[in-house]
Amino acid sequence: MKTLTAFWNILIKDIRNYYLKPPNISWGIIFPLSWTLMQIIRSTENIDIIQLLPGLMAMSILFGTTSMLAVTITFERRGRSFDRLLLAPVSLSILVLAKICGAVLFGCLNAFVPVIFASFFVSLGGINWGILFTAVFLIALTSTLIGLLIAVSAKEVFEAQTLSNFFRFPMLFLCGLFLPIQQLPAALRPISFCLPLTYGTDLLKGTITGSSIMHSAFSILMLLAFAAGLFLISRRSIQKKWIL
């Protein structure tokens, strides 16, 4: 019960304090939102919007979660308030979970901005919402953990954002969002399969456009494996870098 109280309060504090921080607004909200609007306005035929939707959702999640982590972790590290969390009788795993939950939630909410816009133009009746929610959650979770790994290595918010872009943009182009993986140069294809976003995007494509290249169960398993691996690496990284 005590652990749950601490967990809940860390989560609520992050939501209240950081959801509307300027770096989060610019990279986590305005950038995906303007990209979504731009693509939707540009699309003249309904079919384009459906084709674009998985990409826009994945991008909104990726930018939302990584920006949120860059803000929550680096702000607190710089102000030393993160030490307060490390000094509390809360296990490091619970602490990491509480920190990432706020970002996962933020990413999930971000993911549905393009869906809401798209719903005004096209019918979304054929979507398997169960798989879509699972995909959104797992993409948000893995992206958050990547964001956490980046944030652990950065000292300033701008540094974390720059470092995030170093990973975000190549990931967007390699995960099959804009260019199908089959059309990527042979040398780049193995890299694509090492990215969690590839499996998340494939899940989204499968449920929204019906054009996945992998079975949805396989993609879900891969995303779960990535999440577990990234969680352990992040936890270890925090322990190593912050508890000197």
Binding site: M1, K2, T3, T5, A6, W8, N9, I10, K13, R16, N17, G79, S81, R84, L85, A88, P89, V90
Partner: peptide, 18 residues
């Protein structure tokens, strides 16, 4: 936490101890 007021800061610290 600079963003939070004094009362909320104290309540948050107490919450960390359950």
């Amino acid at each position: 936490y600079g963003e939070m007021n004094g009362f909320d800061n104290l309540c948050f610290c107490a919450a960390l101890y359950g």
